[in-house]
Simulated scan of single mutants.
Amino acid sequence: MMGSRIWAYKVQEIIAESGRNASLLCQFPNNNHISLNWTRVDHMEKYVYLHRDGHFDPYNQHPSFKNRVDLQDRQMKDGDVSLILMNVTINDTGTYECRVFVGETSSWKSISIISLRVVVPPGE
Rank of each mutant, 00 (worst) to 15 (best):
P29N: 13
I15P: 03
S115M: 10
S4A: 00
S107F: 06
I14T: 14
H43W: 08
H43V: 14
W108C: 04
Q75E: 07
R74I: 06
E17W: 07
S35R: 13
S82R: 06
S112T: 05
T39P: 03
H43K: 14
M1W: 15
S4T: 12
Y59K: 11
N37M: 13
W7C: 00
G54M: 12
Q72S: 02
I15M: 10
E45M: 11
K109R: 13
N87C: 03
L83N: 00
I84H: 06
S106A: 13
N32P: 07
A16F: 04
Y49M: 09
F65I: 06
N31M: 12
V118K: 11
Q75M: 11
G19C: 03
G103A: 14
I113T: 10
N87Y: 08
T95E: 01
I15E: 13
V88H: 03
A8V: 07
D80P: 02
V11Q: 04
T39F: 07
R99D: 04
N67A: 06
M2T: 15
Q75V: 00
L116A: 07
V119C: 01
L116Y: 01
D42R: 10
T105G: 01
K10I: 10
M86V: 04
W108V: 02
Y9P: 00
G94D: 06
S23N: 09
S106P: 00
T93F: 01
M44T: 14
D73N: 05
N21W: 13
S18W: 05
E124C: 14
N32G: 11
V48L: 08
V88G: 02
E104M: 07
N67M: 00
I111H: 00
R68C: 05
L71K: 05
P63D: 00
F56E: 08
H62K: 09
H55M: 12
S82H: 08
C26R: 02
D42F: 11
R74W: 04
I113Y: 04
I114A: 05
L36Y: 09
D42Y: 11
R117N: 09
P29R: 08
E97V: 15
N31T: 15
V88P: 05
P29Y: 01
W7D: 15
S18G: 06
S35Y: 11
S4Y: 14
S110Q: 01
V81P: 09
P122L: 10
E17A: 10
V11E: 07
E45C: 12
D70S: 09
H51M: 05
Y49P: 02
M1N: 14
E13W: 01
V41H: 12
V41N: 11
Q27G: 06
S106R: 15
M1E: 13
C98E: 02
N60W: 13
V41E: 12
S18M: 12
T95D: 03
V118H: 05
C98W: 03
V69A: 03
E104Q: 13
F56N: 05
S4C: 08
F28T: 08
T39V: 14
V118L: 05
H33V: 15
D73F: 00
K66D: 02
E124W: 15
K10R: 09
N30H: 12
N37T: 09
D80S: 02
N32A: 15
F28D: 11
S64L: 01
G94H: 03
L85R: 03
R99W: 01
V69F: 06
S106K: 08
R20P: 05
P122W: 08
G94I: 04
Q27D: 09
M1D: 12
Q27L: 07
S18P: 02
